[in-house]
């Protein structure tokens, strides 16, 4: 049945692609000593939403320190779509994750300190300027 509308993430990708087409190219820096020489731009974080495959490559099989508001801990994203975590002062738990273009979806399974688990929450997934990653209120730093 038809229930699909063009997803916002797709529109964002298309928009970013159009913008990127207008702004691509290296930054020309003229320092006056060697006119005409093009220097590469400083490394920057990727702009625009990451593709699902990029997010999977970043997370799958890897462990991170995380902060979620005042909560901190460590987490490992399994390649099977599950994750485990150990939350400081609370204990350990599990959940499921899935990447889609531009976003990370997570749901926490019930555990003693989270008796009902959580519903599925999907948040924009981005790389921060510090080289870590953010998804909603969560920040992931590679271990």
């Amino acid at each position: 049945m038809m229930f699909l509308r063009l997803p916002a993430s797709t529109l964002m990708v298309l928009t970013v692609a159009l913008l990127a087409a207008c702004s691509s190219g290296t930054t020309r820096i003229d320092d006056g000593t060697n006119p005409g020489v093009t220097q590469p731009p400083p490394p920057t974080v990727p702009t625009g939403p990451l593709k699902a495959g990029d997010i999977m490559r970043i997370l799958s099989g890897n462990s991170f320190r995380y902060t979620r508001g005042s909560r901190t801990g460590t987490t490992t994203f399994g390649s099977d779509g599950t994750f485990t975590y150990q939350e400081a002062g609370k204990g350990e738990g599990t959940g499921i994750w899935q990447a889609s273009d531009g976003s990370l979806c997570e749901a926490f399974n019930p555990t003693s300190f989270l008796p009902r688990g959580t519903r599925t929450e999907c948040s924009p997934f981005k790389q921060t300027e510090q080289g870590s990653y953010s998804a909603g209120s969560a920040v992931f730093e590679a271990m």
């Binding site: 049945m1 899935q98 889609s100």
Partner: peptide, 19 residues
């Protein structure tokens, strides 16, 4: 499409409205 979701509602013999 792909992703995670929760079953949020269940209906027997549901009504259908084409978008």
């Amino acid at each position: 499409w792909a992703g995670l979701a929760d079953v949020g509602r269940k209906v027997m013999w549901p009504r259908w409205t084409p978008p």
